[in-house]
Every structure is written in C-alpha cells, then in structure tokens.
C-alpha cells in the first residue's frame, strides 16, 4: 500500500495547502492567533486614538467655527500640519526622529512614554485624527441653519446654552457621515503601526511572510481581516445614521398623488 494512503485527512489537507494550493491556508490557520492579537492591537490603538482625538477636537472646532480671536490661528496651524503631512512621516518623526536627541532620551518623558512604540503611535494617531475631526466638525458647526439659532435666541437661551443644546447636537448629527469615513480611514492608516515594530494586523501578516518567506499569504489574510472590520464599522454607522439623521431623510411620497381642486 502506498504510504500516502495512511495519511490522516488533516495531513492530506496540509500537503495540498503547501504544495498545490496557491495560498497555504493551513499555515495561515496554524498562526491565526497572531492575526487575532494583531486585530486587537489595531483596534486598541485606533479606538483609543479616535476617542481622545474626538474629545480634543470638540473645543478646537468650536473655537475655529466662531473664529476665536486668539485660538483660531494656532488651531488652524495645528490642523494644517496634521492634515498636510503624511501620517507615516509624522510617526517616523516621533518614533525615530525624537530618539536621536540626547535631551529627549534623558528627559522624564523617555522612559514610560517616548521609548515605547505603542505610546508614540497613540500620540501621533490621536493628534492626527483630532486634526481631521476638528476641520469637518468646524464645517458642520458653521453650517448650522440660522433658523435653529434664531429660534434658540428667541427662547431666551444664552450663547453657551445655544451651543450646548442646539448647535452641537445638530452639528454632530450632520457630521456623522463624514466621521464614518474618518473612522475607516483611521483603521486603514493604522497599518503604519507595523513600520515601527508593533505587531498589528499587518504586522502579523508581515511576520508570517518573513518567517516562511512568502509573498501573499500574510497580506491576503490581513486584508480579509480589515475587510471584515470595515464591514462591521460601516454597518454600525449606517444604523446610527438611520437613528440620528432620521429627521433629515426625505419623506416617502404617498401612493396617491394629491390633486388640487379648483375651488
């Protein structure tokens, strides 16, 4: 009897996967835990950066929208810098650039914060998303329908109460579609993590490629994971948009056209 007949199904599958399949899926499956850990790191940094960046962006957007005398220009510079330069360059600048200076390496910030790739990434990602979010939130605040503000004044609301109770809730809702893009872009940009030694989702793929000298397996697997994540995020935002922007949807036209009778 041929020796190959004694193989278990699993051994057979591993053989097909390595020698006949264009993609060695058994190898990927053997290391799927690395991809799951990678997903966790990708989500961890992306989500924390989005939350912190989002919180930072609200006061900055208000200052920009109302063109605050002292704050408007510095905040404009800040957003211009972070929106005008690639995230990869910003990350390299903080991770490799700052480490060149003895003063930085000897400062109190070095040991827990700047020496760690995780913190460097979080700082850069937070400021980057804050830059983008500030600008479209500013646009959203600035385009608040004047009628809503007049109505608030007429009810006797102060300027701050108007912002808090009328302008911001309305602006947040209208900024929601733009924000869903920002969240997805941020997830995509998080691949920068793997260039500064962090084992994110792409890092796991590059580890697999590097360890077994492969070209596709690691990337394709990482890609599938990203697609699933983006699918979940975009479904979530669809749901929220339906919920929060319901009042802006066009009403459905009734079946019977209304005919006006000449009186």
């Amino acid at each position: 009897m041929d020796e190959s007949d004694n193989r278990t199904f699993w051994e057979y599958l591993a053989y097909v996967s390595e020698h006949q399949s264009p993609l060695d899926f058994v190898l990927v499956w053997d290391h799927i835990d690395r991809f799951l850990w990678g997903t966790l790191l990708t989500l961890e940094i992306t989500v924390i950066a989005l939350i912190l960046g989002g919180i930072l962006s609200v006061p900055m957007a208000i200052a920009r929208a109302y063109q605050h005398r002292w704050l408007n220009f510095p905040i404009w510079c800040f957003t211009y810098f972070f929106r005008g330069t690639p995230l990869l360059v910003q990350t390299y600048l903080v991770y490799y650039g700052l480490a060149q200076f003895d003063a930085v390496r000897e400062s109190f910030l070095w040991d827990p914060i700047l020496s760690s790739a995780w913190w460097c990434a979080l700082i850069v990602f937070t400021l980057n998303t804050a830059g983008y979010t500030t600008e479209f939130l500013r646009g959203s605040i600035a385009t608040t329908p004047s009628g809503e503000i007049e109505a608030a004044r007429a009810c006797g609301m102060s300027a701050w109460t108007t912002i808090r109770r009328i302008v911001l809730p309305s602006a947040f809702r209208r900024a929601l579609p733009a924000y869903s893009n920002e969240v997805i872009f941020m997830l995509h940009s998080s691949v920068v993590l793997s260039t500064i030694t962090l084992q994110d989702l792409l890092g796991a793929g590059r580890w697999l490629n590097g360890r077994y000298y492969l070209a596709y397996e690691g990337f394709v697997t990482a890609m599938l994971f990203y697609m699933v994540l983006v699918f979940i995020i975009s479904r979530g935002f669809k749901f929220w948009e339906k919920h929060w922007l319901g009042h802006l949807r066009q009403r459905e036209i009734e079946d019977e056209p209304v005919t006006l009778k000449a009186g």
Partner: peptide, 11 residues
C-alpha cells in the same frame, strides 16, 4: 539599520 538605531537609543 533600524535595529541598531533602536538598540543605541535604548529601546
């Protein structure tokens, strides 16, 4: 080169 950079910087 990146490995040596980070070894020198203490990471």
């Amino acid at each position: 080169e990146e490995v040596f950079q980070d070894l020198a910087s203490g990471r």
